[in-house]
Amino acid sequence: MATIKDVARMAGVSTTTVSHVINKTRFVAEATQKKVLAAVEELNYAPSAVARSLKCNTTRTIGMLVTKSTNPFFAEVVHGVEEFCYGAGYTLILCNTEGNLSKQRDYLRMLAEKRVDGLLVMCSDLDEQLLELLERQKETPMVIMDWGPESPHTDKIQDNAELGGYVATKFFIEHGHKTIGCLTGHSEKTACRERLKGYRKAMAEAGLEVKEEWILEGDFECESAVAAAKQFIAMEERPTAIFCFNDIMAMAMISTFQQAGINVPEDISIVGYDNIDLAPYFSPPLTTIHQPKRRLGKSAVEILMQRVKDKEHAPQVFEMIPELVIRKSVKKLN
């Protein structure tokens, strides 16, 4: 098996230069890079991650806990994380928790055993039990993305959820809607409470009544949206518009309504949240609140890298600003 000395000898450079090229830790002239990479390819050289971690006290790996990477919102964020990790010469270990406490505990143990340099947490199931597990990982640099409370040991990225809820509801009101319902996410989650707060604020400003029976709780998955749509269908008096707390639930609700002969936006208007890649191609194209998902992933890794370099810096909270993307799922009544 080839060693770093073999590569250096073939490329006519020092082992230090080979190390910088492979690890992308310092600028190396393009011509030199090409010679080193050609030698690496010809010799089929692969540096020992174990040796490097012992020497440098870094594994150049990042762990990421995510509820379900098949969910389009999480998938797009993960893509942003992976893209940035690749560019920085880091390996990403992705762990799907699926809300299972045993899997969360086992993954955290496994990531600790692998000595990951840092941890990203993006779990819609971020409850007290998982927070307690994370609190035990105080020595591991960590960024919590979007769902959890601030912690003295972690940095945090969140969307301005109250503003997002306000903008979505105000758009309905500006289009003449006065009876507006909501399909929320988990009611105990901070982001969901803030989005609902924004909805109530817009309704109050317009002097409109909030009917509590029109605020239904979902879980950010399709099945809960189908059940909620059936509840709305069964109501004698339905709202003319519904604000869904993510795009997947909005799409499942539209599909269920249409199967029941209720057309969107002719009979009922829908606004989603996230602006996933599928949103413009759905029927009708979905009006939604945009979250910059790939930038969210990139920012999370950048912040985590800062924490890896300086574990003592004060916790940071970075806020993403939501934006309305107007398409074809809202009918103008005025």
Rank of each mutant, 00 (worst) to 15 (best):
T61N: 14
A11Q: 00
V143W: 03
M249G: 00
R193E: 14
Y273A: 04
L324G: 03
E319I: 14
D155H: 13
L134G: 07
Q258I: 00
A202C: 00
T16K: 06
E319S: 13
T17N: 06
Y281W: 08
N71I: 13
D277N: 13
K178H: 13
R9Q: 15
C244M: 07
V40Y: 11
D146R: 02
A88G: 01
K328V: 00
K114A: 04
I276T: 08
L133T: 03
A227K: 14
W214K: 04
E302V: 10
E30P: 08
G176M: 12
C244D: 06
M64T: 11
G181I: 02
P149D: 11
A46V: 15
S14A: 09
P285S: 08
K201A: 11
F27I: 01
S124A: 09
N275H: 12
T179Q: 07
L120R: 02
K170D: 15
S14G: 14
L43P: 03
G272A: 09
K156G: 02
G185S: 09
I270Q: 09
I270E: 04
S19R: 05
F171Q: 05
V13L: 07
K311Q: 10
A161I: 06
F171R: 12
I262Q: 08
E217C: 08
Y90I: 06
K189D: 11
I326V: 15
T59C: 09
F245D: 05
S255A: 14
V13H: 09
E319G: 05
E188K: 11
E30K: 13
E237H: 13
R60C: 06
V66S: 03
E205Q: 00
A300M: 09
L216V: 15
E188N: 14
K178I: 03
I62S: 01
G99P: 00
S48R: 10
E41I: 01
L208Q: 08
V301K: 11
F232N: 03
V77H: 05
E194Q: 15
K170E: 15
Q306P: 01
M320I: 09
T190H: 12
E237S: 14
H186K: 10
K332Y: 12
L183Y: 05
G118H: 03
L126Y: 11
C123I: 10
H186N: 09
G181K: 02
L108I: 13
D159P: 05
D159G: 07
G297Q: 01
I270G: 10
W214D: 05
R238G: 06
Y90W: 01
N23A: 04
E236R: 13
G164M: 04
M64W: 07
A8I: 03
V21S: 08
M235Q: 02
M10K: 13
V18E: 10
A38V: 07
E236W: 04
G165V: 13
W147M: 13
L92M: 14
T3Y: 06
L333N: 05
N263E: 10
H153A: 01
